[in-house]
Amino acid sequence: MKSSLQRKTGHTVDWLGFAPFLLFCLAFEIVPIIFLLRGSFIEKTTHQFTIQHYLDLQRPLYINSFINSIKLSGLTAIIGMIIGTFIGYAIYHWPSERVREALITLSDVTTNFAGAPLAFAFVVILGMNGVITQFMLQYFNYDLYPKFSIYSFSGLILAYVYFQLPLMVLLILPAFAGIKKEWQESAQSLGADTLQFWWRIGIPVLIPSLIAGLTLLFANAFGAYATAYTLVQAKLSLVTLQIGYMIAGEVRQDQAVGMAMAIGSLFIMGLSIGIYQAATLRTRRWSKS
């Protein structure tokens, strides 16, 4: 009894073993973020408290950055969630285990293929002279450009969905595994048909996983930088791109506005990760029974 209680709370000495890691996190993550938060409320010359930096975010450039970022993340998260769920279902019920495992491995690898190489791969296929662009032009006599452009919002959506899809597949597969065959059979023996089962049991059971997937995908896209940086540069303003410009000193903006922007994006990310956590907790509680 006593030893288990000790293990739970820990002696002061035991906490010392945790200290190096905690210090590392404080030094390279938590304290800098706190300074960032503080900086976003401080007037640069007078060192007085101010909310002016947040008011400055109302300028069209910043407002647009937030709107674009949210639109891009939201849209690719929804597309990724819906299509990813169906693909996940197809993979989950694929008869051959080897094919299933191969597809899961593929998802594992491709979801990490974000950034510059991926952006460039999309230029190769969908750029002005890309493979698919050429293919469409020669076989269907249809020019994707200028309606579509890989260097624009529509192009970014295609590139983002590339890493969103496999991420959703990976997130939803355990959820399908969690829908037990016995539930389906119970429902059937109680008189339900397939549609009634999915409507009353299957989909409600999946919903926490779908919400968790949606929010994680949203956060995943919202924080992305390298893909967008490589593809659109200054043609489209996104929150992460704006913050990046401020660090690099490429734009002559007040640094404090950048901090306010960073805190704003932290808030949005925190919200989605929080919802993700809550949803995941619920799926765990259900799968327990």
Binding site: K180, E182, S186, A187, Q188, S189, G191, S287
Partner: peptide
């Protein structure tokens, strides 16, 4: 007759209660 028209009750080893209800 399909299972959902047989009017037969079934109890499973793993309880199989619907977790969302």
């Amino acid at each position: 007759v399909p299972p959902n028209r047989r009017d037969i009750g079934m109890v499973f080893q793993a309880y199989a209660l619907f977790p969302n209800l």
